[in-house]
Design a protein around this nucleic acid. Sequence first.
DNA 1: CTGCTACCTAAACTTAAGTTGAGGTCAAGT
DNA 2: ACTTGACCTCAACTTAAGTTTAGGTAGCAG
Lengths: 149, 149
Amino acid sequence: MRKIIMPEWISVGVLSERTGVSVSALHFYERKGLIKSQRNASNHRQYPKHVIRIVSLIQVAQRTGFSLDDILLELEGLPNRTRVTLEDWEALGSRWQRELDKKIIQLTELKEMMADCIGCGCLSLERCRLLNPYDELGEKGTGPRLMTE
Amino acid sequence: MRKIIMPEWISVGVLSERTGVSVSALHFYERKGLIKSQRNASNHRQYPKHVIRIVSLIQVAQRTGFSLDDILLELEGLPNRTRVTLEDWEALGSRWQRELDKKIIQLTELKEMMADCIGCGCLSLERCRLLNPYDELGEKGTGPRLMTE
DNA sequence: CTGCTACCTAAACTTAAGTTGAGGTCAAGT
DNA sequence: ACTTGACCTCAACTTAAGTTTAGGTAGCAG
C-alpha cells in the first residue's frame, strides 16, 4: 500500500472557516499549546490539514465539559500528537462518554431531589435533602414552621 | 389561627454556617441585590431567618446551571420577595426542572452522536455530524481519506 | 488594659476562555 | 500608486463568581 503524503497546509483563516472557531481563539489555542503551526515566508501560520481534526476534538471535549487545560493533558497523552488515529479517537471518545454519563447522572439526581422537595409539601426548605447540605441541623428540635407572616 | 411573627434575626456568620456559603460570597450576593439585610447598632448585618431559604434556592439554581443574574431575575419575579411561599417554590422548581431536562437531553444527544462517530469506523472526523457544525463541506468530492502518513 | 472574635469597607486579585484594539507587514487587484 | 484583505504581535480588556488583603470597629473575657 502506497503512503499518502498528507500535510497539505491551510491558513488560519481557512482553519477558522472549516472549524467555526474564531481566528483569535485559534491563536489562543496555539499560545496554550493545543495546536501548532509552521510559518510561511510571510510569517503567516500554516497548519497541516489534520489540525482541523484536533480543533474539532477540542470543540467536542469542551461541549462535554472539559477545560482547555484538561484537553491539553488529553492531547499530550496521545502517542503521536500529529496523527490522530482511530484508536486515539476511540479512547478519547469512551473517556468523554464516561464524563458525559457522570454529568447526566448528576443532573438526573438533582432533578429527582427537586421533585421530592417540591412534592413533599412541607416547605421545609431548611431540611430538604436538596438544600443545605452543610447545615448540621443547627437548631434541632424546633423543626420547620409554617410561615404565616 | 394565630400569626407567628417570623423575623428572627441572624448574623452573616450564622447565615454562612447554616447555608455553607462563605461570608464573602454572602456579601457579594448582597451587593448583587440577591439578598438584603438590616444593620444593628454595631453596623453588623442582620438577616431575617428566611434568607436561609433564599440562599438555599440560589444554591440549587446555580447547580441547575443558572447564573446569578438569571437568579436575580427569578427572585425579582416573585410576588413577595420577603416570603417564599409553597407556590413560589413549586413554580421555580418546575421552571428549573425544565432547564434540567433540556440540559440532560443535550448531553444525551451529544453522547449518542459521539457513539455514532466512534462506531462508524471511517475516521471521518471532518464530516461527522458531531463535528464541524459550521463546516460547509469545504472540499466536496474528495471525501475522507485514510491517513497512512 | 490587652487580646480575641466577629464583624465592617474598599479595592485588588483570581481563573477561564477568549475578544478587542492599536499598529505593522505583505501580496494582489485596479 | 493605491487600496484592500488577510495576516502578524502585543497588551489590555471582558465576564462570572467570588476570594484575598489591608486596615478599622465593637464587644466581651481575663
